[in-house]
């Protein structure tokens, strides 16, 4: 298990290097253009050229990437071209917002998917049909449309919850909870049906297998079969589904953060990518890569722990 984990970490490092290098090449433009974007239309060309040199943007792109890697190895993500802020500090205020939203959504999605998916697979009938309907509906309606509808009805129309903004939990716990409800719902509504349907498929497949028939023939109750054997076997594909949904959700969170004016990392990444603020964009990409790596690692390790068939010796 330790060797396996170390190998996964090694591949994660390689993935990080490849993705960050590709991002650097994609976002990089010629130095004076970036300096012009930073300083604005009123800046003189001399000032623009001087700023490009000051920021090291006159160096070859691979030299700049190498410098970024060296800074990273020293624990520094650099400073924003625009605000001058330390990128680590910027991420420190943004990452928790994104992580909390995705974390709550994943938790609820996992819980609801398992409950509804299992019920649909075991009971069938109307539960299954309703699930199929909502899975298609959820996939058909984009999260930002759901977000706008929720805002217009729940926030603007009924005044029950805030339409925008994020409240720090240490300042107002109730306000914090309220500020999360609609963003979480907007993402959840679009993704939970699909996740539950996929989990239903996994459970349904397990229920068809020979060992389940054998268990039934021995007179073991349906509850014990489902909760003691089937769910454990369905855990691995279920976790894979959840992992993929979590990674896919990062893209959706960007839109949700903008619609709800949440100060998360997605919103920051969009704004700064448009301005070619390379240090900030690289910081955001590094965060996204880390999320992907951690989610995959956790999925594999927990899946192996839950299901002896995929356990790695």
């Amino acid at each position: 298990m330790i060797v396996y984990t170390l190998r996964r970490l090694g591949s994660a490092l390689l993935l990080t290097a490849v993705v960050t290098c590709a991002t650097f090449l994609l976002i990089f433009r010629d130095g004076p253009s970036i300096a012009r974007a930073i300083l604005g239309e009123q800046a003189t060309q001399e000032t623009v050229d001087a700023r490009a040199v000051e920021l090291g943007l006159d160096q070859p792109v691979f030299s700049q990437y190498w410098q970024w890697l060296r800074d990273l190895s020293g624990g520094s993500l650099g400073h924003s071209f625009f605000t001058g802020e330390d990128v680590t500090s910027m991420l420190a205020t943004r990452v928790p917002v994104t992580l909390i939203i995705t974390g709550v959504v994943v938790l609820l999605m996992g819980l609801i998917s398992v409950l509804v998916g299992t019920a649909a697979a075991v009971k069938g009938g109307w539960i299954d049909r309703v699930l199929q309907f909502f899975a298609v509906l959820g996939s058909a309606v984009p999260a930002f449309i759901v977000a706008v509808l929720l805002v217009l009805t729940v926030a603007v129309g009924w005044g029950l919850l805030p339409a925008t903004g994020y409240v720090q939990p240490e300042r107002d716990l109730g306000g914090w909870a309220r500020s999360l409800v609609l963003p979480v719902l907007a993402i959840l509504i679009g993704s939970v049906g699909s996740a539950a349907q996929q989990f239903r498929g996994a459970v349904s497949d397990i229920l068809q297998q020979d060992f389940v028939r054998t268990l039934r023939s021995r007179g073991i109750g349906e509850g014990r079969i489902v909760f003691g054997h089937v769910l454990r076997s369905a855990a691995a594909p279920g976790l894979t589904i959840l992992g993929l949904q979590t990674i896919g959700m990062l893209g959706g969170v960007v839109l949700i953060e903008r619609v709800f004016a949440l100060p998360g990392i997605g919103d920051l990444a969009v704004e700064m990518a448009l301005r070619a603020d390379i240090p900030v964009v690289m910081g955001c990409v590094l965060f996204a890569v880390l999320v992907v790596v951690v989610v995959n690692l956790v999925t594999d390790v927990v899946g192996a722990w839950l299901n002896p068939k995929v356990r790695i010796s």
Binding site: V148, V151, A163, T164, R258, V259, F260, A261, D267
Partner: peptide, 10 residues
């Protein structure tokens, strides 16, 4: 609030 929709909603 960079997003115009968010500003109007707010």
């Amino acid at each position: 609030m960079p997003e115009p929709t968010a500003r109007l909603n707010a």
